[in-house]
């Protein structure tokens, strides 16, 4: 392909490198170079996603099957499964009626549909993954023994710690009860557990971000400037 031509690859590398540096100038302060890079980034990505949705979602999931279905009616043998596509198609058209001032209210119906089905669908998913699976994994004996019946102190302590953290954390997320007295103290312990968890997660994620930075520096120093191999 023409895009694989070394000249285009070199051009692409230079554009990517200059835009990387342009965006990085934001570290100093907002400036015309950053504004330009930002505008190009936002504009191109918006256009890219529009094209992507059109070719990868709208046509393969609605346009092509609809056309193929209608064609069977005229060419035969007739199939009618495509009629179900009229539902999303109609909902999509209703959404576009926002552009017509007098019929704008119709756009609320597909929105209501989306909100309703999202809530219903996610109820089961959340219940299973966030409640039942967690519950199942939380039910562990807090005393552990090895095969020969020897008490495992460290393992037992770990399980006990997880159990206390789970209970205290759940207490924090009770909204029907004021956080006072014993309840409040347990909830307070819950916030400690949460903050320690957040601290650990912070460090872990920052390490991930460092690898992204290293990847970008690698691009600049190796692919662009050829200073390192």
């Amino acid at each position: 392909m023409w895009m694989d031509h070394p000249g285009w690859v070199l051009f692409g590398t230079w554009v990517a490198a200059l835009f990387t540096l342009g965006i990085a100038t934001f570290l100093y302060k907002d400036n015309p170079v950053y504004k330009f890079c930002e505008a190009v980034f936002v504009g191109i990505s918006a256009g890219y996603w529009f094209v992507s949705y059109f070719w990868q979602t709208l046509l393969p999931k609605l346009g092509y099957p609809f056309y193929a279905g209608v064609k069977t009616v005229f060419v035969g043998p007739a199939e009618w499964g495509w009629l179900v596509l009229l539902i999303p198609g109609t909902l999509g058209m209703m959404m576009l009626l926002r552009l017509v001032p007098k019929a704008g209210w119709i756009a609320r119906w597909p929105l209501a549909f989306i909100v309703g089905y999202t809530a219903g669908l996610r109820l089961i998913t959340f219940l299973q993954s966030n409640a039942m699976t967690q519950l199942q994994n939380s039910v562990q004996p807090v005393v552990r023994y090895n095969e020969s019946g020897q008490f495992l102190g460290w393992e037992s302590f770990n399980i006990l710690l997880v159990t206390v953290g789970t209970f205290a954390g759940l207490f924090y997320f009770f909204f029907s009860q004021e956080h006072k007295g014993v309840f409040g103290r347990v909830a307070r312990v819950g916030t400690w557990f949460l903050m320690i968890t957040f601290g650990a997660a912070f460090g872990y994620t920052v390490m991930g971000r460092m690898s992204l930075l290293i990847g970008r520096l690698d691009f600049l120093l190796a692919d662009w400037l050829h200073l390192i191999r």
């Binding site: 980034f41 504009g43 191109i44």
Partner: peptide, 17 residues
Amino acid sequence: LTDDQFGYAAGIDGLVM
């Protein structure tokens, strides 16, 4: 603004500044 995650972040950063 845009569907793109970091394009969106760049756009908001600019607006905020």
